[in-house]
Nucleic acid binder design. Structure first.
Lengths: 218, 218
DNA sequence: CTACATACATTCCTCGCTGTATGTTTGCTA
DNA sequence: TAGCAAACATACAGCGAGGAATGTATGTAG
């Protein structure tokens, strides 16, 4: 029997509960994220859960922070894997795309929607969301020292994030294959826009060609 | 006392209930859209509601169709108010923006998210959503006969919708003033993109100027 | 006018979620 | 090692949702 210090037990348990909360957000949505389910998911009794987070609001509040840091950490990890390529801007876009795909963003949107009818939650998100989104943009921006100084570049990144989020949210319940089609179109548009903004990247003419040739399947 | 035929009573009642359902979606979210609340909102008893929609799934299913037709009708109405202007493409974008702002789109996203964990609802949306989105694009496209034939134009419209939806969903719980800032940036980008795609519109150079001058407030 | 169907209302039952109260174990500290 | 506090477990109470059963009024067809 391993003996752990109380603080170890506590933080480990809190982490398990918060991870379970995010998992429940992804799997069951915000409304389906009930305290019994979270406890079950974490593999603990309800008593343990209620001990660390006496009220559901406490749990959600902590989960908001937890999710925020997880998003930033994940983005940081993905950024490290970004290699130099001929199509630098395109790689940057794909990075941003990769950051938004997956469970963490789904859980985030789940919170965004829930915040509409929950002032307490809304205040939490209003506080952390700009930090996270800003951090995401910073990570990509850091990969482009030559452009980083230009405001237009950052604005371009924000537009790119808006496009990505628009695609993901409207297909959130749909199949993955259509997602990639949509992203290819949008990606081409964003690269073309970058050229229009005078942001240097790889050759864009190729993408321009692709654009008009795209089949009618969209 | 006015005597109404049974069919009149029935359709009127169904309409009231479906309108109330959409209102509840906007105000309380999907999870908060309970059958008692819908009935209360519609000003009828629970008995009346359950008579027309025996199960909650029946109500939601009908509401999906109702919302779809409402969205199309609203878009059609807005399109009629579109006047010829010097900045034709910009006006088209603003039209698309106006269509997406407001209650109907909020209710739609509420359904999108709920569909993630509700296969039945997902199937419903998979059926109607492409029709609605397609109709929206058609309305705008109809205003530009010169460009309507070009696939690039339609693709551009879809990207525009993605941008709009990305903005709206990430600010769904936030204040309206930030929305307009974000839309102005994105709008400029979309017009610049249109120029890059060879889509004729108003003068774009002015917007290009605005872009790089935008303050750092985003 | 009678009989039936549809529209609407009331009541009750079951279930799941939240929160609380109370019991038990485990680690810390004097 | 005795005692206390934190960590965890169990049991229960209140509440609101969804749905079924049953009752009443209002059209409608023969």
């Amino acid at each position: 029997m391993v003996t752990r210090t109380q603080e170890e037990r506590s933080t480990a348990m809190r982490r398990r509960l918060l991870d379970a909360t995010v998992e429940c957000l992804v799997e069951y949505g915000y409304a389906g994220t009930t305290t019994p389910r979270v406890a079950e998911r974490a593999g603990v009794t309800r008593g343990a859960q209620v001990h660390h987070f006496p009220t559901k609001a406490d749990l959600v509040t902590a989960a908001v922070r937890h999710l925020a840091t997880e998003r930033v950490e994940f983005a940081a990890g993905e950024t490290d894997r970004l290699k130099a390529s001929a199509d630098a801007l395109g790689a940057g876009l794909d990075l941003l795309w990769g950051i938004h795909r997956g469970r963490l963003f789904v859980a985030t949107v789940e919170l965004w929607m829930a915040a509409r009818s929950d002032p307490e939650l809304r205040d939490q998100l209003k506080e952390v969301e700009p930090l996270v989104t800003g951090a995401l943009a910073e990570f990509v921006r850091g990969q482009f020292p030559a452009q980083a100084a230009r405001p237009a570049f950052r604005h371009w990144l924000y537009t790119a994030m808006d496009v990505i989020r628009g695609i993901l949210v409207s297909e959130v319940a749909m199949t993955d294959d259509r997602l990639d089609q949509r992203w290819r179109r949008a990606r081409g548009h964003l690269l073309l826009l970058a050229a229009g903004l005078g942001l240097e990247g790889g050759s864009v003419s190729g993408h321009d060609q692709k654009l008009t040739d795209t089949t009618d399947k969209n």
